[in-house]
Amino acid sequence: MNIFRLAGDVCHLVAIIILLLKIWRSRSCAGISGKSQVLFAIVFTTRYLDLFTVFISPYNTIMKVVFLALSYATVYLIYMRFRNTFNSENDSFRLEFLLVPVIGLSFLENYAFTPLEILWTFSIFLESVAIMPQLFMITKTGEAESITTHYLFFLGLYRALYIANWVWRYHTEGFFDQIAVVSGVVQTIFYIDFFYLYVTKVLRGRGKMTLP
């Protein structure tokens, strides 16, 4: 464990909690893409299948359980509890455009052709595009509440910190996970234009972020 990965996990947890609290306190999921949240729940489910078979550390196990619980709680709030506030017509991204390439690629490019490895690879590739429905919704509605932008900021920052973690681990322990690194770089690239908007718009106290 190094400071970059710990900071990354904390940012990831903060992002998930920001979104969950926003939905719970405002009792509304307006402006939130339910599809992205479903994809994140799938990412955690397919990645943490070794939750009961491989023990790494108490931290690892606890964080996996927390991420699974919070992501399913978020999906529950969106599609069950506050479903009457869910504007599905804005959440119109075609998930098959993401799932088909990701499933195909995880069968082509993986470390081992075993169910657990393929599902892990699928979760890594899926995570890199899981935010697309949310970013698509923001470009479609042309705006995002500031709390949603804070959520996206921490979510993007988490994987950027993981890249720093991979650089650190490569130089200190020769660790190199090609699939995770390539996918993580692609994922972070998707956030770059958002980071620009976030810094120029939201942090200047503009409250709501309206796209040009």
Binding site: H12, K64, E117
Partner: peptide
């Protein structure tokens, strides 16, 4: 090296 099996990252 390529990593398989033990995955210690979240």
């Amino acid at each position: 090296e390529r990593v398989t099996g033990r995955k210690d990252e979240l």
